[in-house]
Design a protein around this nucleic acid. Structure first.
Lengths: 188, 188
DNA sequence: TTCATTTTTTGATATAGGTCAAAAATAACC
DNA sequence: GGTTATTTTTGACCTATATCAAAAAATGAA
């Protein structure tokens, strides 16, 4: 999915505004397993993932890496609070495949928010979408068995579940990798 | 906390804009244990809770009511997707105490979003805040023991934890009420 | 106040999923 | 292509928390 199409699908910008907005995004290619953001540093960019997969994760108090979120094609990828509040990130962010992204800086997106009323609207709509998605995860995690959680994963990230390490998925779902392995076996 | 102060704290509206915005909110008093939104119906209003406590909850597939979120004084209260996407709500919403709220309709808030660029900004900021909060809950729930979860609850909702039924908190935290009761006992 | 209802606590037992350890299967690299 | 490193699977055992049941405490209505 192209970023322009994605934006258009959410807010009907006049074409010349969209063109201007697009000019602030920079295309980048990022190799597999590149850590794009470290814990403690401030997230400098908002990425739109055109191709590839990424995840955010953090180091929990038992010294284990826990996946917080997966990012697939056609989605924005960032550490939301760190980027928007310019605060030290609590999590890491990395690519899990060679990826093609479009990135924009905080400065530029703020400029666009100021410049275009519709850009703010776009920001609001995207944020509400994100809230809904996280809320879905929460509902899945909170009261469901390990195997229900895996079904949620398959539904929410249909084309990611088979492309990323099992351990990353297990920690995302709050179960151990051994348990996930056994679930997959039953699942055939 | 007054709603005007809350809005001011997030975005610096010119006073006359704020005044106009305020005029679209209607003060309401809602008695304890009033169901404000039913599962399946479309959430008609966004509420700002000036006084009282509320919660949203849903009926899970085992026929149990599960608290999804608590709303305390000085916060907005709504079913986000239902209100903004005008879709049937997946959850119920109720007051847990006699409450004083300021409400606004979807139609009016959309009008204000269109009218004031800064209103869109306010909407965006609020949504990001909400995402952060949900994300905090998720991190607490996902990998922590029952007792850690209760500590999260105390921290996130300091002045709510002692005002609402134990069973409502237990389901919010994804544990049984018996377990929560035992935790509270140890807690001294 | 008293009685009925709801909520919370306590006790006994069961179980889903965790932990630890090692084997098997894949993937990465010279 | 063979060797090493990484990831996944399998097995045996354990523990935190669920479940079920019933007593105690708190709340509310008349």
């Amino acid at each position: 999915m192209q970023i322009a199409d994605y934006i258009r699908s959410r807010v009907d910008f006049p074409e010349e505004e969209l063109k201007d907005i697009m000019s602030y995004f920079r295309k980048e290619t990022i190799a597999k397993n590149t850590v794009m953001l470290n814990e403690g540093s401030i997230c400098q960019k908002l990425y739109f993932l055109e191709k590839g997969v990424g995840r955010s994760y953090y180091l929990n108090k038992n010294g284990k890496y826990v996946t917080q979120w997966f990012f697939g094609e056609g989605n924005f990828m960032t550490s939301l609070e760190s980027f928007f509040q310019e605060s030290p990130s609590l999590s890491f962010m990395e690519t899990l495949e060679d990826s093609v992204v479009y990135s924009i800086t905080k400065e530029n997106i703020d400029y666009l928010f100021e410049k275009y009323h519709k850009m703010e609207k776009f920001g609001r709509i995207i944020s509400i979408d994100m809230t809904t998605k996280i809320s879905n995860k929460l509902n899945a995690i909170q009261f469901q068995t390990a195997s229900d959680r895996y079904n949620y994963m398959l539904k929410e990230f249909p084309n990611i579940s088979m492309r990323v390490p099992l351990g990353d998925i297990a920690s995302y779902l709050g179960i151990t990798q051994e348990t996930l392995s056994r679930i997959r076996k039953k699942h055939y």
